[in-house]
Nucleic acid binder design. Sequence first.
DNA 1: ATGAAAGCGCTAACAA
DNA 2: TTGTTAGCGCTTTCAT
Lengths: 348, 348
Amino acid sequence: MREPARRVTARDVAADVGCSVSSVSLVVSGKADGRVRQETQDAIHEAIARLGYRLNTTASALASGTSLGVGFLSPDPTNPFFSMVLDGLGDALADHFALSVLVPTGGADYDRGTVRRALAGDFAGLVLASPSERLLDDFVPTCPTILLDAGGPVNDLASIDVDLGQALSELAAHLTGLGHRRIAYLGFRREKASVQGRRHQLASALQQRGAVLDPTTVEITELTESAAQAAFTDTWPVWRANGVSAIVCGDELFAYGVLRSCRAQGIRVPGELSLVGFDNLPYSSLIDPPLTSVDLSARLLGRTAGEALLDLVSTGRPPASHRVPATLVVRGSTAAPATPQAPQAIAR
Amino acid sequence: MREPARRVTARDVAADVGCSVSSVSLVVSGKADGRVRQETQDAIHEAIARLGYRLNTTASALASGTSLGVGFLSPDPTNPFFSMVLDGLGDALADHFALSVLVPTGGADYDRGTVRRALAGDFAGLVLASPSERLLDDFVPTCPTILLDAGGPVNDLASIDVDLGQALSELAAHLTGLGHRRIAYLGFRREKASVQGRRHQLASALQQRGAVLDPTTVEITELTESAAQAAFTDTWPVWRANGVSAIVCGDELFAYGVLRSCRAQGIRVPGELSLVGFDNLPYSSLIDPPLTSVDLSARLLGRTAGEALLDLVSTGRPPASHRVPATLVVRGSTAAPATPQAPQAIAR
DNA sequence: ATGAAAGCGCTAACAA
DNA sequence: TTGTTAGCGCTTTCAT
């Protein structure tokens, strides 16, 4: 039963050395050169090591008015996309801040409650990944905040987004080149503008090549395989009747869900149905069939967000919103449709 | 160009209401009932809302001597195993602490530097996932710490571990039942005791059923697919010469790496080589072939660690080390060996 | 029921 | 170059 062992403070060190706490503070924070004599510095260092002194970062933060960490919110820390974003973010921030991951409670998307907890955390900055529309509506930032994958700036908050333009036209070219004429989109329902943007970009890229995005819209609110599996199972009869021969999924997890549904129903992929995912996870190339993917550069996205936040925190000037380009990775889940496709009229 | 907007403090609220800061503090911390008159409480609540006051958690932590978060260290936040552990941890801790994920710098395993940063963070507690042997050697905890997947308690630190006993004998029964007689193990080199333990458990389970664990040991230090791919490519000639017909991988990522190597070399899985992974990621059932897996119950592991930590932090008594049972999930990557296997002598 | 006051451990003026 | 001092915003006795 050992003592609570009162923590060694800067004062203890100062007393031991016979100097003042300010000198200790200066030495510890590395601002000592030219302000504290070398001998004193040495003595302080020695005492710190001997006594086992460690800076109390809480007190330090309070006194200096700076905060210690930045918060990261994502709908689901389990989704590989967000893990990779987190990894990139860590890269950019590691030397400057601790990264707090606010895990939404109960497997749901993060909501006001989670954000409130984040705001209570006295962070130096906040990164909101794939925030939902409702959330942003009444979100009042209390610290430098940047959005990630919000589809563009919202309420003066900069957003780091994926630029899908190039990848989407490549995708359209790829699919139409294979002979697909009617493609469906299985999206993630988050912030309106973003979703519409993705759909629209894909739709117009397809149109330019004489193909069509099926107007039957499916937007999933839950970022899980099983939700996608269920949604696809429900909607496939309609899409099939419409002549859809390829599906583009707004999240790779969705593609996995579709795949499961196809297996369960005996739908051949590719052939009867071609499948494209957004993300390009490490597993894309291992699954059966290997998934053709739009690579969202998650890690780069995270790093860019980290850098933007660093900039925002230090300069106080709102950073420009950034776009990092996505790239198309073609694999085995897309092939020519089994039945030749009729040319389509322009949608809507 | 808006003002730095000095933060609303408890004093502002007190001044507004015409009471003292102590009352505000009591109300905010929920200790007001019976100590502050109801009218005053109401007035304070009203002022808080109107003024937009939020508790400064840094100051609160300093004054009360409590800390705000717990730190989580893992070799790689990108590895789905750790994401799931993190998720479980978040579940257990969410209402009590913020979870800080300390991301190791530069993609390497976390080292003393990372730990030092963690220790500097004034956490209420620390969770060290899959710590390396060297790390623990000279690790001096400065706050309640629990280990996760360390293979058992180390230096008085409790560890939450997977109990492989049952799953491993099922696995041995499964493999020998299929006709395998010589199995190799591709492990993750971390803390010695743990690794030896896993190997030994598997070895003895196999022996009891007349099969043998190939003595050629491969222990990978880096938790990546590509490391496993390379290691397997190097060692396969030896294993093949020894008559190995099945491989058990200590991490599912390793199994993916082996799979890639097999594809590259045209080794048929299963048939020429059966493959088993440890983890049972969501992707196990989608890859080709679906992976037979020892499910490590990552999420439960995380949740258990969280609960143990909560207990440790609040009671101060070291929690018991826990073992959560793994389970075998049989899928398509294991089958009878193409060539019948000779009965094997007992290894070493 | 309420408020005054003494810190928590550190930082940053300012004096010396 | 060094030490003294006044806080940072909150919690927590302890009087009142």
